[in-house]
């Protein structure tokens, strides 16, 4: 006695995604209206958000994968600090940029496999595992070097060139008040981040592994009973997170051009909050990287607005993010309630 559904229904997750995107547009449009005179309307402002957050985009993609399984990875901020420090110190000691990057990616993958092994095979709480990972990476960063190490042109001309390369876009420029044409540009890190985004989007939507992440998050027991290798899937998720985090670390380093112990503190929370604002549930099984991407953009827009204003204290982004998170969690639970209601 079930009613055939004739009308195409959007499920509530799709609606949540639309809300996230709409929120970004509203926020951004608000910024344009309020600070249009200060250049907020320029396309470059948007591109700057991407440039500043390239690393965070990569990290959030990985975080989303882990959160889909119902887990969490709070080691990412510290791992980035370690990556940056290794890059800086390694290149200072004469290593080339490319070998260093390969080393860092390898370290990321191995570190992820280790964390994933503890979570998947030894069934230790992800929070505990990645907290230990966090302490380890921060500690290691300090062991490598306690001072701030800058990456200058002398240390690595290649890396320096990448950091300063401008990829000029053929559209969206403006003429400044001195009459000079300002072409919009992005940095190489942005290209990397967008590639990561596309790859992870495809991975989550169109591959067996991607779908199994959702299955594990939906019900671990069921996934096992349906014949999925849950332990392996979890391990791979953490590996992916740390690996993407290392890619993000390189992007991050291209922005900061330095290694320091206190770098990227709290970045894991930015990643988690972006994912949550993007519609990823902490309980697992629901979410996607497009949402997470917009989550990052929303966070970036808030910072950008506060920066453009110039008078607000720098703690305002935190407060606004907190409010947004709150609003999102309320919206999510309303949807969950509606879904419960409809089920009957």
């Amino acid at each position: 006695m079930d009613k055939a559904k004739t009308k195409k229904q959007y499920n509530s997750n799709t609606i949540l995604l639309f809300i996230t995107i709409a929120l970004f547009i509203v926020l951004y449009a608000g910024g344009c209206v309020a600070y249009g005179s200060k250049g907020f309307t320029h396309f470059q402002t948007f591109l700057n958000i991407l440039i500043t957050n390239a690393g965070l985009i990569c990290v959030t993609c990985g975080m989303t994968c882990v959160m889909l399984t119902g887990g969490i990875d709070i080691s990412v901020g510290a791992l980035i600090a370690m990556d940056c420090m290794l890059l800086a110190v390694g290149m200072k000691n004469g290593m080339g940029a490319v070998p260093m990057i390969i080393i860092i990616l390898l370290i990321g993958a191995v570190f992820g496999i280790f964390q994933g092994f503890l979570v998947g095979y030894l069934e230790i709480q992800p929070f505990i595992v990645s907290m230990a990972g966090m302490f380890f990476c921060r500690g290691m960063t300090a062991v490598i070097c306690t001072d701030q190490v800058s990456i200058t042109q002398e240390i690595s001309p290649t890396f320096y060139a990448w950091a300063n390369a401008k990829i000029v876009l053929p559209f969206g420029g403006y003429t400044n008040n001195k009459g000079k044409y300002m072409a919009p540009y992005v940095r190489p890190a942005v290209i990397v981040a967008l590639l990561v985004l596309v790859v992870i989007f495809i991975l989550l939507r169109y591959t067996k592994f991607g779908r199994s992440l959702y299955a594990v998050g939906g019900s671990e027991q069921s996934a096992a009973m349906m014949g999925l290798n849950v332990k392996m899937i979890k391990m791979k998720a953490y590996m992916l997170s740390s690996f993407l985090c290392s890619i993000g670390g390189i992007c991050y380093c291209l922005n900061t051009m330095a290694g320091s112990v206190s770098q990227a503190t709290g970045l894991e929370m930015d990643a988690i909050s972006s994912a949550v604002i993007g519609g990823t549930l902490l309980t697992g099984g629901v979410g996607n990287v497009i949402g997470s991407f917009f989550g990052v953009l929303i966070n970036g827009t808030i910072s950008s607005i506060v920066k453009t204003n110039g008078k607000l204290a720098s703690s305002w982004p935190n407060i606004l993010t907190a409010m947004l998170l709150f609003i999102f969690i309320v919206i999510q639970s309303i949807f969950a309630a509606i879904r419960e209601r409809k089920k009957a």
Binding site: Y214, A215, G218, S219, S222, M226, L228, V286
Partner: peptide, 15 residues
């Protein structure tokens, strides 16, 4: 033992 967050089709074919 199925995953409520996946579509009916995915539940039939996952794995």
């Amino acid at each position: 033992n199925l995953c409520p967050n996946l579509s009916v089709a995915e539940n039939l074919f996952i794995g």
